[in-house]
Simulated scan of single mutants.
Amino acid sequence: MTRDAAHRPITLYSSTDGRVPDYNEGVEYWGVPGLDRLVVNPHTGSQILVSGSEVHVVNTDTEAGARDALRVVKQLVTTEFEAAGVVTVHAAAFAVADGAVAVAGPPGAGKTSTVLAAVATGARMIANDKVYASTDAHGTRICGWTDPIRVIEAPGAPKRALTLAAYFAEDLSRLAVDPLPLRTVVAADVGTGSVPVRCEELEPGAGLLSLRREVLPPRVRWLGIEPSAAPRPPLPSADRFLRLTYGYRDAARAMELLLNRLDT
Rank of each mutant, 00 (worst) to 15 (best):
F94I: 05
A97G: 07
A100D: 07
A102N: 05
A104D: 05
P106E: 15
P106I: 09
G110H: 00
K111C: 01
S113E: 11
L116W: 00
L116R: 02
A118G: 11
A118V: 01
V119L: 05
A120R: 13
A123I: 07
A123N: 07
R124L: 11
M125A: 10
M125V: 10
A127R: 00
A127I: 01
N128G: 09
D129G: 06
K130E: 10
T135F: 01
T135N: 12
V151D: 05
I152P: 00
P155V: 10
A161P: 02
A169R: 14
D171V: 00
L172V: 11
S173I: 08
R174N: 10
D178Y: 14
P179I: 14
P179W: 15
L180Y: 01
V186H: 05
V190Q: 08
P196S: 13
V197E: 03
V197D: 10
R198T: 15
A206M: 07
G207L: 12
L208I: 01
L208K: 03
L209V: 13
L211K: 07
R213M: 09
E214K: 12
P218Q: 06
P218S: 10
V220G: 06
V220L: 14
G224Y: 08
G224C: 10
E226V: 09
P227R: 13
P227N: 11
P227S: 14
S228Q: 11
S228F: 03
R232P: 00
L235D: 00
S237D: 05
S237K: 03
A238M: 11
A238K: 10
D239T: 07
R240Y: 06
